[in-house]
């Protein structure tokens, strides 16, 4: 073996750190917010948009985006949708019970880079608000570092809206433009109805000054990007987060490949200019 091969082989990147469920808050019928602390007492040291691999011992591991801001020092938050085996088992964990955490992994929204000084437009579709919330909190905590801040949020129905208190807080803040819509209203819904792209032309976006941070299902990106092009937002100013089956988190297992890119190490947050010609991306 080459000398190069022998370096830094001692650290086991597959070994989870023990962690504890501190609190659970039910957000919707399928989503619960978990507050988690590493048993080592250390901070997670993540950036907005990064994910962790959560272990439910005996059930398995699942990649979950971190939902709290790095500013938050006592533990971190994850929004978990009951979707598969591991996430269902997570929902069954009680406060005080143990999980394993690996990570944080992957790229992040450039809140510390090109987003600084620019107008920020957050576009969240459904559970896409969970990863974006980390960046939104960060930007609002460091409000003076950014220009105009806009949050656009779309869900299928009012029942799927997450973080109702925060939505109402953002809509009241004078330094945030908050707009939301639902695909299908219910009897009590008085707000916008329709797809999220409808909000884009009326949001007062100054394309030249703006960086867009989007998170939602692939179908949302297809339409959102067309709407952003229509108001002259450049590909280089659009960041999206792509979901895949990130199993190992370190670019080895092959599951999260998007053509030649790994969602776990090259992503999950991609600049749209970098994935324009990547056929499997969106």
């Amino acid at each position: 073996m080459t000398a190069e091969a022998l370096i830094c082989s001692d650290r086991d990147l597959y070994l989870p750190q023990p962690a504890t469920v501190v609190s659970k808050t039910v957000l919707t019928a399928t989503e619960t917010l978990f507050e988690i602390r590493l048993d080592s007492g250390e901070e997670l040291k993540h950036m907005p948009g990064q994910f962790v691999e959560v272990t439910v011992p005996g059930v398995g591991e699942a990649p979950i985006s971190v939902s709290s801001s790095p500013d938050r020092k006592d533990g971190f938050e994850l929004v978990v949708r009951r979707a598969g085996r591991v996430t269902s088992a997570m929902h069954d964990r009680r406060c005080g019970e143990k999980l394993g955490i690996r990570g944080p992994f992957g790229t992040h929204y450039p809140v510390d880079g090109v987003m600084r000084g620019r107008d920020i437009v957050f576009i969240a579709g459904g559970i896409g608000l969970a990863p974006l919330r980390s960046a939104i909190h960060w930007v609002l905590n460091h409000r003076q570092d950014y220009g105009k801040v806009t949050v656009l949020y779309g869900t299928k129905s009012p029942a799927e809206r997450l973080f109702l208190d925060e939505l109402s807080d953002w809509s009241c803040r004078p330094d945030v433009t908050f707009m939301e819509t639902v695909d299908r209203a219910d009897a009590n819904w008085k707000g916008n109805v329709g797809v999220i792209t409808k909000l884009i032309p009326t949001a007062g976006i100054d394309a030249a000054r703006t960086v867009v941070a989007a998170c939602g299902p692939p179908i949302m990106y297809k339409f959102v990007i067309v709407s952003l092009y229509a108001i002259d937002v450049m590909d280089e100013s659009i960041y999206v987060s792509l979901e895949r089956r990130m199993k190992c988190g370190i670019g080895k297992c092959g599951h999260c490949q998007i053509n030649g890119l790994y969602a776990c190490t090259d992503g999950p947050v991609f600049n749209h200019a970098d994935i324009l010609r990547v056929q499997e991306a969106i």
């Binding site: 073996m1 190069e4 650290r11 990147l13 370190i250 670019g251 080895k252 190490t265």
Partner: peptide, 19 residues
Amino acid sequence: MDRYFTQDHADSHYLARRK
């Protein structure tokens, strides 16, 4: 394989065997 499992992030389990 040596290259794949050592590039970027070294896979300690592979290396433990390989050595």
